[in-house]
Design a binder for these strands. Structure first.
Lengths: 142, 142
DNA sequence: CTTGAAAGGATCTAAGG
DNA sequence: CCTTAGATCCTTTCAAG
């Protein structure tokens, strides 16, 4: 991975559907050279996937929360979070808190149901998201 | 947004670079019809963007943490998180905690520097990420 | 790595149901 | 809102340097 690869990664994070021709011109390489570099980044799993970024509100997920768990049954909580459709992300962390989950539901009622269901596996502390300072997905490369 | 649009969204979350031909065949429409639907989802900002999903470890971001802030100066903390390259996401939340930030750094030392720098704006409580139960980005559509 | 050409796909456009 | 068919554009591959 050299500087050009870093630049490619940065560009594809901002616009994964950029054409190879355009990408090539930005990094001052020929299209075949750019394509080859992208292919290598994919092969090495440095680029794992390409995804559409959605507007949560516009698909009906109006309530967002970050829930901190002091877990009783770690494995069961992990499984629960993995399978529940409201969970966007869930991390096992070190410290007093065992798990941190980011959830998005279509209503306060659904959130309540999620919390109630999760309480079997741990003690949740729910933080309703008011706004996003930085959206989750673009990773700054500096 | 009908069921076909939901299916399109789900497919593009899993593989944003899927060809319109392939997508069209899965949803049983012709390629122009599929393209038109995707264009509308983009116009409505239901699909906000397309991005490459990166492997944090493989680009040298080996340390991940979720930091909970009890903020002193909210605006300044927000600005700090917005500008700092280690911050993947940052949310303003309701409750005792004011901000929750997800950060990834190349070393424990860099994390320490981030924490020290952030302490001017609030009281951080750092939770080192041990593992991911669910990766942040694919939103289950159920 | 580059250029240029050629083959194969993918996308767009237009006409029509 | 959809389909089909033709035209166009893009990407990829290859050869040669």
């Amino acid at each position: 991975m050299d500087e050009i690869d870093l630049k490619i990664i940065e560009l594809l994070q901002q616009n994964a559907k950029m054409s190879m021709k355009e990408l090539a011109s930005i990094i001052h390489l020929s299209p075949p050279a750019a394509t080859e570099r992208v292919r290598k980044l994919e092969d090495q799993q440095i680029i794992e996937n390409y995804q559409a970024q959605l507007n949560l509100k516009k698909i009906g997920r109006t309530i967002e929360a970050i829930i901190l768990f002091k877990s009783i049954d770690c494995k069961a909580l992990a499984k629960f979070c993995e399978e529940h459709p409201a969970v966007i992300s869930c991390y096992r962390v070190a410290g007093e808190i065992s798990y941190i989950a980011h959830v998005a539901t279509d209503s306060v009622e659904s959130l309540e149901q999620f919390i109630d269901a999760s309480m079997v596996y741990g003690t949740p502390s729910t933080n309703i998201v008011l706004s996003s300072v930085t959206e989750q997905i673009i990773l700054p490369l500096k």
